[in-house]
Design a protein around this nucleic acid. Structure first.
Lengths: 227, 227
DNA sequence: ATCCATAATTATGAATACAGTATTATAGGG
DNA sequence: CCCTATAATACTGTATTCATAATTATGGAT
């Protein structure tokens, strides 16, 4: 493998995303929306036709999704949407709690006054949406809160592992925030986390975040048993 | 997306791996061996010709490697082997320490007497190879030890995150075990871990494993500065 | 001689075509 | 009537072909 090309300076590419990437993104969303249901077969020809593309970029997109774990490729059998078992969830959430807990710990350690202000603002939005009983916006603000923490933690790899793990959680049913009491409980947990961060108590921030995630697992479990 | 196919019972596939998978595996090994050097351009045509295949499965393999992070695909520019900076390593190792630490913790909690025996056996091999000053076999046994811990921890997702993170570490230079004293130090750390597991002290096992990984980072850093 | 504009080349991205295998349908026998 | 064996079909996996963008080479101007 000789360098027949120049070093090709590593300037960041801001080129238009490749077709396979766009397709992968669209498929991700359809999977998250359960429009492509867990366990179901993915019909290459049908989707290619629907998107007005050939199977080539579609298949490349499926390879990406397979590497992410959202679909499973069975040789000569085709592509199937990944299905998570209850046991999977019981295993994923603790890992998520570990990662997000560390994230909160690091964020609490490293946050500047300005950072804390930013977090407090988002937390304020969280409180408003909880008061208004608006699960969708609460969800939005919640996600924002977690993303800011990931930024503040300042570890690109930690962040990526979290986001990758989150992809799996997106495979599950949504709506646990709509359970009676869950919104309020989630808010209370966030208040504890926020308080720990403002007091610059990293250990406490980490621990409460850890428990917050596990609490999310419990809520999801209820969602499955209740209805 | 109607089910034009039957449920297709989810029997595990033991079919021959697809060509793109084999190619991905070969490329991974070449990347790990630095035969494809970090930062270098990957010549699709040359490799396709070398392997006697068309570009199609090769490109699919590259998509997989890109999703794993081993290569970077720049639209219309081609494929480049990922290059890790010192800062990347400073960020990856703590995450690895977190994951492996938890792994050791869980393994120590859950291990049966038979499991501890198995670990002790591998640890024994570790001691022999250290005494014989055989870094390569020490490396092998070391990897085995960690893999067994991952099994014992009993969390598929934790294991997968670790292995995925390990892929990145494989991008770095090997041979830190050949540094004078490192083999002995690594063994000493393993002895502490093993002792904690035998005493069923999960907290200690987790903490010592955590520090063991960070110690690996320090050794790697030396490798870069010394020579 | 250096720099810029333009032409030629080369590589990537995507579509189409083909081969081989798994699945489904059909026919025959128990 | 059901089960088995065989043929037909459909889909996946791979190769080939084509279009387009990026890179390199060439030639001319300053």
């Amino acid at each position: 493998m000789d360098a027949r090309r120049p070093p090709a300076n590593p300037a960041l590419s801001l080129a238009a995303p490749a077709l396979y990437e766009q397709v992968a993104e669209r498929l991700r969303n359809r999977i998250y929306a359960h429009e492509l249901a867990p366990g179901s077969w993915v019909d290459e020809q049908a989707i290619a036709a629907e998107y007005g593309i050939s199977r080539t970029p579609l298949r490349e997109a499926l390879k990406v999704l397979a590497a992410e774990g959202l679909v499973t490729l069975r040789p000569r059998r085709g592509c199937y949407v990944t299905e998570l078992s209850e046991q999977d969830l019981d295993e994923i959430f603790p890992v998520m709690a570990l990662l997000e807990g560390r994230c909160a710990y690091e964020a609490a350690r490293k946050a500047s006054d300005a950072d804390r202000k930013r977090l407090a603002d988002i937390h304020g939005a969280l409180e408003r949406h909880a008061a208004a009983n608006d699960p969708d916006r609460f969800f939005e603000a919640n996600q924002q809160f977690h993303e800011v923490l990931q930024e503040l933690a300042g570890n690109r790899w930690l962040k990526e592992l979290i986001q990758e793990t989150r992809k799996f959680l997106k495979l599950t049913r949504r709506g646990s925030l709509k359970l009676t009491g869950r919104l309020r409980q989630s808010l209370a947990e966030h208040q504890t986390i926020m308080a720990a961060i403002e007091r610059k108590n990293a250990d406490l921030a980490g621990r409460t975040m850890h428990d917050h995630i596990l609490s999310g697992r419990a809520a999801l479990a209820k969602l499955y048993t209740v209805r």
